[in-house]
Design a protein around this nucleic acid. Structure first.
Length: 160
RNA sequence: GGAGCGGAACGGACGGCCGCGGCUCCCUUGCGGAUGCCGAGGAAAGUCCGGGCUCCACAGGAUAGGACGGUGGGUAACGCCCACCGGGCGCAAGCCCAGGGAAAGUGCAACAGAGAGCAGACCGCCGAUCGGCGGCAACCUUCGGGAAGCCGCAGGAGGUAAGGGUGAAAGGGUGGGGUAAGAGCCCACCGCGCCGGCGGUGACGUCGGUGGCACGGUAAACCCCGUCCGGAGAAAGCCCACAUAGGGGGGGACGAGGAUCUUCGGGUCCUCGGCGAGGCGGUCCGUCUCGCCAUGACUCCCGGGUAGGGCGUUCGAGGCGGUCGGCAACGGCCGUCCCAGAGAAAUGGUCGUCCAGGCGCCGCAAGGUGCCUGACAGGAUCCGGCUUACGGGCCGCUCCGGCA
RNA sequence: GCCCCUAUCGUCUAGCCCGGUCCAGGACGCGGCCCUCUCAAGGCCGAGACGGGGGUUCAAAUCCCCCUAGGGGUA
């Protein structure tokens, strides 16, 4: 069984997605806005990649980096060309982003999160993606808090 | 009903809830919240052509290089579109064609074949006031024989391009005459070339005359002719902010005249000239800018730093409707509309009803019900095209079959 | 986004500019046989490719067009 901050959210998640219930909950403030909640600079994405800690669950991989400011979590999406044309890549991106939006209150605060799809992504429904995202994010955040910032992977060569 | 051809569109519909990107307006110290409006495609794609735009001083000349190629139009322009001409394919509706020049030049054609570009004799056919052999033989005879000529056989200088055979291609086709056999050698028709008349803006068509066959293929081979093209590309480019401090390496040169100041060493300025670098991102000319004429500096290459914001950035060869001109592509005029502008990058998630198709179950049937499926595909500077990917239906036409 | 380049046996490559001699050559690897007591080495033999589709041409790996798949450059 997975640990969750609120039993009502747990029931909401397990009994089926119901946005109305979630929005009226005082513990979960808002389902809106991932606009300032996006990582806007390539530098910060790079930082999360190089010094964050990864963890995967199902078709989702999350890199977590603690900004240590207690603010709501922020998001970046990386979907490479290997996943197909622009339409299918957008489809994956939107699914991940929607999962992030609806699950934002359940995600660890103060973290920058970079989301990547992993291999069995074909034909995944949003509910499953959302559950995997929450699980992976918490595992990555725990690992970051335990082990601290990591070092860049040596195998990957970057330009500039 | 079947097979096929052409064309114009469309790209599931409606709603609830939670969201996203712009602009607007209101609240807010601010993060942000709230109102209203707008928010992907026919291909947004491939980046294959043509332009706008920006920078390279101007975009000049020559050359290299590249693209295009029936004719006439359309267009900002095109390699696109329309109409027509010619050729090819199809019973037809229709479709396809890089469709100038091979009597300017150069080159190429493997293998096969006798011969492949001012061609050629392998088989075959023919064959001399050519001889040989055999047979017959007018006639002559000294009765031994001789002999023109005829027939046959093998040979034969040579003739021949009809036939066989080779090839992708063998130097007009069919028929007749002609000949030793043949051959445009001659004739008729067809084709081809040339000349002229007529029609057409023209490509070309058509009619008549004439030549006597001579010009084979390939130019998506080099090439010739005609037309067009300067280069780079929005990560173009412009501005602000921030930042580095001048780190390493390379390059080059001869002045003359005048004015003026002078402490007579020289300094400053101007003109001409010379030199260098850079721009015109193939080259040369031409030209411009800067610098130098013994020195700071100029310039090139490498290295280092910064990489945040704004403009470009969306009103445009624009869409829709009408009308007029035109066979049409398209254009003129009038009216009307504002129609995505992001920047690690917006159209999504979920639920329901309906629509279309498929499968299963119930039912005699009408129908009911459950499940599944609903293509190709997402703006990134913008337009005009082309090409490629793709769903079901509609309209018109052709051919075949059946019924009336 | 914009601008370029490449594609030939399992792998690395030659041939392409200037079409035929190509049934596409070589090396490594692979399979079989010989040699050896056995393995390696060596020798002999063999299988194996022009990314796909159309066009030009008598003839295309080669020339032209369109797709597909890889790779590179660029503030």
């Amino acid at each position: 069984m997975r640990q969750a901050p609120s039993p009502r959210v747990v029931s909401g998640v397990t009994a089926g997605y119901d946005p109305l219930v979630a929005s009226e909950d005082p513990i979960v403030p808002s389902l809106r806005l991932p606009s300032g909640a996006r990582i806007r600079h390539g530098r910060e994405v790079r930082r999360t990649f190089d010094h964050g800690r990864p963890s995967g669950s199902g078709p989702v991989v999350v890199y977590a980096f603690d900004r240590d400011d207690g603010a709501p979590p922020r998001l970046a999406l990386v979907v490479g060309r290997r996943w197909g044309g622009a339409v299918t890549r957008n489809r994956i991106r939107r699914l991940l982003r929607e999962s992030f939006r609806t699950a934002r209150a359940e995600l660890p605060t103060g973290f920058d999160l970079v989301l990547l799809p992993r291999d069995p992504f074909e034909k995944r429904r949003m509910q499953d993606v959302r559950e995997d995202l929450v699980a992976a994010a918490h595992r990555a955040a725990r690992r970051f808090r335990r082990e601290g910032p990591g070092t860049p992977r040596p195998g990957r060569r970057r330009r500039r």
